[in-house]
């Protein structure tokens, strides 16, 4: 019986997030992702230098729609992004994902200067490397990103979320501030590759992109993203440099808005404990994406962080 070993020709770009004092930033550590030349955890046929990492979300406004199951974990820090980030660091995540929801024109509509101030506050409150994402309104996000990039200059953050509408502004901002960029496309592997090409065509290094193929919640389109991620990773290992970027999914965001994680036990007695249900949903979704090849998962519940760190540590043992 000969073992069935695949000979891969390519590997995923390795990306560092965060800069320590030596490299001109103020983070206590750098987080490296990607760099593998094998499918997830198949260390018998390639190298897997870095494990998948876990980021936790910090918002700059109190999330209006969060369920109590989540809110209760954070207590009174939900209206203080700096304290919130500190709390997440204690909860054991690898990265902080700062979501600048307050700039949303449909919400508080705060200015780029306000958001930049928040970024600085969070940077001084936590020593973890940062992901910084906007409010999801493409126009508004591109109008603030230059100032955000400047505020975090030298910290080697991962900025998001660039789309085909605003990638030029994002790439230019990230370039001048020394950051990397999350590039998002709507569930389409060809558009995903195209956006990476467009960004590299304007001189932005393909090694500084993280792919967001869109995140489908478990039971709500998960399988589309799962397969796109598997295909992307297979393309990377086969040598396609425009698909060789690490991959991120926003698991928490798609988990906690589902009915399965919100409906209380009187409405849905057949679904069991509400308190446990959402955490288990978030863990199952995270595992699924990690097994498909995802490198960063962004989650919300501290128990998910703990369980996933254990799980990943176990998988990285050769």
């Amino acid at each position: 019986m000969e073992p069935a070993i695949e000979k891969w020709s390519g590997k995923v770009y390795e990306l560092t997030i965060g800069a320590t004092k030596e490299s001109g930033g103020s983070r206590s550590k750098k987080v490296k992702i990607g760099g593998m030349s094998a499918l997830p955890f198949l260390s018998f046929e390639g190298t897997i230098p870095n494990p998948p990492v876990i980021a936790m979300e910090v918002w700059d406004v109190e999330p209006p729609d969060w369920t109590d199951v989540l809110k209760n974990e954070y207590g009174n820090v939900l209206n203080d992004p700096a304290q919130w980030a500190k709390k997440c660091e204690q909860m054991g995540c690898d990265l902080i994902c700062l979501r600048l929801e307050s700039v949303n024109p449909d919400g508080k509509n705060t200015s780029a200067a306000d958001a930049a101030k928040t970024v600085k506050n969070v940077l001084s409150a936590t020593t973890l490397p940062l992901l910084i994402i906007g409010c999801g309104n493409s126009e508004k996000d591109s109008s603030i990103i230059t100032e955000i990039s400047e505020a975090a200059k030298g910290e080697n953050c991962l900025l998001g979320i660039a789309t085909k509408e605003n990638y030029k502004t994002y790439a230019a901002a990230a370039l001048s501030g020394g950051h990397s960029v999350i590039a998002e496309t709507p569930l389409d592997i060809n558009l995903e590759k195209q956006l990476n090409i467009l960004m590299s065509d304007m001189g932005f290094s393909p090694e500084r992109i993280v792919i967001h193929p869109t995140t489908g919640g478990l039971g709500y389109g998960f399988e589309y993203c799962y397969s796109i991620i598997e295909r992307t990773r297979l393309a990377a290992l086969s040598g396609d440099k425009m698909m060789s970027q690490p991959i991120i999914t926003f698991v928490g965001q798609e988990t906690w808005k589902t009915k399965e994680c919100q409906a209380d036990e009187t409405d849905m007695p057949a679904w069991g404990s509400l308190k446990e249900r959402g955490i288990l949903w978030e863990i199952t979704t995270s595992v699924g994406y990690i097994q498909s090849g995802c490198d960063i998962i962004v989650v919300n519940h501290p128990k998910t962080v703990k369980e996933m760190k254990n799980y990943i540590n176990g998988l990285m043992v050769r």
Binding site: L218, G219, F222, E223, Y226, S227, E260, A270, W271, G272, S273, E276, R277, L280, W281, I283, T284, T285, G288
Partner: peptide, 19 residues
């Protein structure tokens, strides 16, 4: 317990959906 089996069954449903 149902809260454990529910996500597993949903994951299975997703993975085994004919693409």
């Amino acid at each position: 317990s149902v809260e454990e089996i529910l996500p597993l069954i949903t994951l299975r449903l997703n993975i085994y959906t004919d693409p």
